[in-house]
Simulated scan of single mutants.
Amino acid sequence: MTEPYHQPGASPDVHLEDNIQEPRRYKVLLLNDDYTTMEFVVRILREVFKKSEAEATRIMRMVHELGKGVCGVYPAEIAETKVSVVHARARSEGFPLRCTMEEA
Score class of each variant (00 low, 15 high):
K51I: 11
F40E: 09
P23S: 06
V48P: 15
I78N: 09
I20K: 03
V85S: 05
E17V: 11
A90I: 03
H15F: 15
A90L: 00
P75K: 06
S11A: 10
T2Y: 14
L16R: 09
P23V: 01
P12N: 10
L31H: 12
R43F: 13
S11F: 09
T81Y: 14
C71Q: 02
G9Y: 04
R61H: 12
K51W: 07
V63L: 04
R24G: 09
A104S: 03
E22V: 03
P96L: 15
P75I: 00
E17H: 10
G94V: 00
A79T: 00
G94K: 04
K50D: 10
G69I: 01
H15A: 15
F49C: 01
R98N: 15
C99G: 09
M62K: 11
K50A: 13
M1E: 13
G94H: 04
A10I: 03
E93Y: 05
V73A: 01
L29P: 11
T2K: 14
V28R: 03
P12W: 07
L45T: 08
T2F: 14
I78R: 07
P8A: 13
M60D: 08
C99R: 03
R98L: 15
M1T: 13
H87P: 13
M38K: 08
M101F: 10
Q7K: 15
P75M: 02
T57V: 07
V85F: 06
L16N: 06
E17S: 12
L30E: 06
M1V: 11
A76P: 04
S84N: 12
C71I: 09
A56L: 05
R89P: 11
R25C: 00
P12K: 13
K51E: 05
L45I: 14
D34I: 05
S84W: 13
Y5K: 13
A10E: 03
E65Y: 14
Y35H: 12
H87G: 13
C99F: 08
M62S: 10
L30Y: 06
A88T: 04
V85D: 04
S52T: 11
K51M: 13
D34H: 07
V28L: 02
M101Y: 09
E53A: 07
E80T: 01
M38R: 08
D33G: 06
K50C: 11
R24I: 02
C99S: 14
V41G: 04
M62A: 08
Y74P: 00
M101P: 00
E53D: 10
S11R: 10
